[in-house]
Design a binder for these strands. Structure first.
Length: 377
RNA sequence: GGGGGAAUUCCAGAGCGGUCAAAUGGGGCAGACUGUAAAUCUGUUGUCUACGACUUCGAUGGUUCGAAUCCAUCUUCCCCCA
């Protein structure tokens, strides 16, 4: 269930709820735990503390390890990782892109050589739906092909036409699985994914096609794969008018704080990105004052927290000098604290966006922060 | 006391007459990261008035057109025998 509470321009303040329980306030950032854990030593317990509303995991990775049947046996992903909030599972479509050298695409689906041991695995729309059903996530993503950038119009057209056909198969299989008496999460929703590379005509055609299938939500995929941010914004501008108003919109894999602010201004409700966790592990920390590279020598004896204006578990207790030392000394605590900090920041960013939308001050918020949060302190 | 070995750029450690400002690690410094094959990857790391020049390979003195590389002496460390 999704409803828009308020519009400011095209920006939307909404509420989303799923059968499993829990209301998600949008715009929202989904914290990425690909393998059922946030990389860097962050557990579901920590997610609650840092204000995460919804978690994202991955079909391909959990299918390989520990295996979706194992997760099903353990009661589904919620119980397995002890997270009772909403979970969205990505379909494996991104791995068609990221593991390009290890896969082969056909009409039926994609054959991967496992990145772990090389064994062949086949994943098509039906398999992806089955795996996500076993995982018992609240939102399943359609199996798509995330096309690399740059792509030719010819390839992008053939690919998004196939992705459209795949969606029909996803919808049918998803409906069948949800109706089974022993299905893990009978209320599981399905989001369709728009593709079409950087070609507005393909994007619009594809969006119109998949909108007919009446999915529970729609995502824009295949962006932030190397194209300039302006191109990404142009694509959102082109596609957004063709997305159902009463369904959540999810911009997959995006992005920087400014990307998110800009996408919210264009009517996007859901986001996810590896950036806060990955950059955190690499010592790059987001703050309201700009980004901090904690590895820099200038912080060697800096007694202040990463950000004076942050109340995260790291900033509450530790100095920049200490965090830098932990990194230099290869202590895992460095990763954990940094990831907690960055995720805290992202969740707080979304909270402030929602507050601004509630207060009708989104434009001011955007003017104040867009394009500025990535600058170095 | 006798015999043997070694000293290389921040560290470890290659090099054994020219193609050596000197491999490779590590450390240092900086950068990248957008539905996670990422606790990863990339650049850089003698000095300068910098597409060239200058000073380096324990010290000093030699041999040679040319030495981190060969010789002599010295210094320091390590090993073995007494």
């Amino acid at each position: 269930m999704f409803k828009v509470i308020k519009y400011q321009g095209r920006a939307r303040r909404g509420q989303f709820s799923c059968a499993h329980g829990g209301v998600v306030q949008t715009p929202v950032f989904m914290n990425v735990g690909t393998q059922g854990a946030i990389k860097g030593g962050v557990s579901a317990h920590d997610l609650r503390e840092i204000g995460c509303q919804i978690e994202l995991s991955n079909t391909y990775h959990l299918h390989l390890r520990p295996g979706d049947q194992v997760v099903r046996t353990m009661g589904g992903l919620h119980q397995f990782m002890n997270w009772d909030g909403p979970i969205l599972t990505d379909s494996g479509g991104f791995q068609v892109f990221s593991l390009a050298s290890l896969r082969k695409i056909k009409e039926e689906g994609v054959t991967f050589a496992s990145h772990i041991d090389g064994h062949r695995i086949f994943m098509g729309p039906e398999e992806s739906m089955q795996i996500q059903s076993n995982l018992g996530s609240d939102i399943a993503m359609a199996f798509d092909e995330c096309v690399e950038n740059p792509a030719t119009h010819e390839y992008a057209k053939a690919s998004c036409e196939r992705t459209a056909r795949w969606l029909e198969r996803c919808v049918a299989e998803h409906r069948r699985l949800n109706a089974l008496p022993d299905t893990v999460n009978p209320g599981q929703m399905l989001f369709g994914i728009n593709q079409g590379a950087t070609f507005p005509d393909l994007r619009v055609w594809h969006m119109d096609e998949i909108a007919k299938l009446n999915c529970d939500g729609y995502a824009i995929g295949g962006l932030a794969v190397g194209e300039p941010a302006e191109v990404m914004y142009d694509i959102i501008d082109a596609v957004e008018p063709h997305m159902p108003q009463d369904k959540p919109r999810y911009l997959m894999g995006v992005g920087t704080p400014s990307n998110i602010i800009e996408a919210v201004s264009r009517g996007v409700d859901f986001f996810d990105c590896v950036m806060p966790s990955r950059n955190g592990r690499h010592g790059k920390l987001f703050t309201w004052e700009g980004t901090v590279n904690i590895l820099n020598r200038k912080y060697e004896t800096d007694p202040s927290p990463v950000s004076e204006s942050c109340s995260c578990p790291c900033c509450r207790s530790f100095s920049k000098a200490y965090l830098r030392h932990l990194f230099k000394a290869d202590e895992v605590l460095a990763l954990r604290l940094s990831v907690l900090h960055n995720l805290w920041f992202y969740n707080e960013l979304m909270q402030k966006l929602r507050d601004a939308l509630d207060a009708g001050t989104f434009d001011e918020f955007r003017a104040k922060y867009s394009g500025k949060l990535e600058q170095r302190v």
